[in-house]
């Protein structure tokens, strides 16, 4: 049995602890904001936060979340940085098809939590694991700068 919170709400799970966290979120809880892209830690679509740190939930077993705080795209706006990132995303209309964007926003939020004023190089270093098949990279970079400005 493992216990954790998801977006502030307590949960416990005593099924197969090797189940990827992504499966738990999507299939057990029907929280489908977090996306399944590759299932092999290659695309970033499934990014969530464990105690504020990004993880690829497709390769993270539920057991790794024991005792931790999970934040998903559905709850990232509970904090100031997540709200600023989402506002910047809307303002600059970053999204195209949208499939990768939950992961992009989760990674961008983790980046700004660690680095308040990232350079283009810092953004590239943080975001290169989040693939966007619609190639919205230029707008993603602009929106991270915009969010940093709004948080300053």
């Amino acid at each position: 049995m493992v216990k954790f919170t998801i977006n502030g709400k307590a949960h416990s799970f005593d099924g197969d602890l090797a189940m990827p966290l992504l499966w738990y979120l999507r299939d057990e809880l029907a929280m489908t904001g977090t996306k399944y892209g590759c299932g092999m830690a290659l695309c970033g679509a499934c990014t969530v936060h464990l105690d504020g740190q990004s993880v690829r939930s497709c390769v993270t077993p539920v057991s790794a979340a024991d005792g931790k705080k999970i934040t998903t795209i559905e709850g990232v706006d509970a904090e100031r940085i997540g709200r600023a990132v989402q506002a910047a995303w809307r303002k600059l209309q970053v999204v195209q098809c949208g499939y990768c964007q939950s992961g992009q926003i989760m990674t961008a939020t983790a980046l700004l939590a660690a680095n308040k004023n990232p350079s283009d190089a810092d953004i590239d270093a943080a975001m290169s694991g989040n693939i966007c098949r619609c190639a919205t990279y230029v707008r993603i970079r602009a929106a991270i700068h915009e969010a940093a400005r709004s948080l300053a």
């Binding site: 092999m40 390769v59 270093a125």
Partner: peptide, 24 residues
């Protein structure tokens, strides 16, 4: 790097083999 730590993908043990032989 901030925002992309090794621990994003690399856990404290190998990813389950069911995720493919090249999983982290």
């Amino acid at each position: 790097m901030p925002g992309m730590m090794c621990s994003i993908c690399h856990q404290t043990q190998n990813a389950s083999p069911s995720m493919g032989e090249h999983a982290p």
